[in-house]
Write a protein that binds this DNA or RNA. Structure first.
Lengths: 170, 170
DNA sequence: AAGGTAGGTTTCCTGAGGAAACCCTACCCA
DNA sequence: TGGGTAGGGTTTCCTCAGGAAACCTACCTT
């Protein structure tokens, strides 16, 4: 979370970043989607301060990304589940994981494999064009003003993507 | 950036989140990839504190995500360009933008359109299986331990993804 | 009655984030 | 030769978010 709120900015990345653009929220979503849904389990798994965990969870609930649900009455026990909006963060997490795998995995390779149940293979995520199915990259895409545009910070839209230097994954 | 460093954790999302898991770094990368590469331009466009901008830029340079480059000698002027590692964050940004578009775009629709130059259409990113090309979702994927696994915080790997509740994009 | 577990809340401290002013070099120009 | 401006930061000062650890409240078990 930034101190400078980005909620009013006309940029979907800024608006998304305002809500889930902090490391703990991303890791909480990862855990919840993977089945770690209880307060104590999250605290233990992440090593996060319990105060911050409580704050993040209530923000995520406020935003409709998680719901707090009682799963047992005696004794009363609650856990946190992802809503549809929360599950739609999966591509963000996959993209981050893939990037982390490529640039930070050690000698031994990545710590986790993703298996695609539909085709049965261990796989990696590819960001593809909804239209033609081929990969989207900085080189083959450009940004154009949309219908919801208006001037303001973080709103500048320029021509074809530029500005790169070669490097290889280590 | 978290105070609790996540760099040592065996989880690619955690390691990625440690580096770019903060709103400003994500927005800086967005700007740089779109052609806003100079200090003052970034400061103005983002409305970020100049101190924080300087800190983020040097972290991103340290991590090999950006390079600082002189683009003019008289007078000496520098700017920041994305490396290959930096450009590979594009899928993360696209995923975030897409999520922001779906859940935070107003009546008028999203502020920016992505045009895929290869097929010529305005498009949206789809997170697809590198193997079979169909979409990856929480429902059709599962996580398995990888070769680089070892015990520690944020490393738990469970069975098929569970824990969801229905909602529709607003 | 003592101890354990789940799910937080409170307290206190440190340091990251923000605003605004300041600095330095290098032009540009009269 | 002095003044103005632009780029690219750095410094100062303040506030508030993040972290550690203790505490609290039900409820259950032995």
């Amino acid at each position: 979370m930034t101190r400078t709120s980005l909620a009013g900015v006309t940029c979907s990345i800024a608006r998304a970043a305002d809500v889930v653009g902090d490391a703990w929220s991303l890791l909480i979503m990862r855990d919840v989607l993977v089945g770690i849904t209880r307060f104590d389990d999250l605290a233990t798994d992440l090593g996060i301060s319990r105060k911050i965990l409580a704050a993040r969870l209530s923000r995520l609930v406020e935003e409709g990304i998680l719901v707090r649900e009682r799963y047992q009455d005696r004794p009363p026990r609650e856990h946190y589940l992802a809503t549809g909006k929360g599950r739609e963060l999966y591509p963000v997490l996959l993209a981050l994981m893939n990037w982390g795998d490529r640039w930070y995995a050690g000698e031994d390779g990545p710590p986790v494999r993703i298996r695609h149940l539909d085709c049965g293979h261990d796989t990696a995520p590819v960001t593809a064009c909804a239209h033609c199915g081929t990969e989207l990259t900085t080189d083959n895409t450009t940004q154009l003003p949309g219908t919801g545009g208006r001037a303001g910070p973080g709103t500048r839209v320029l021509g074809p993507l530029i500005g790169s230097r070669a490097t290889q994954p280590g």
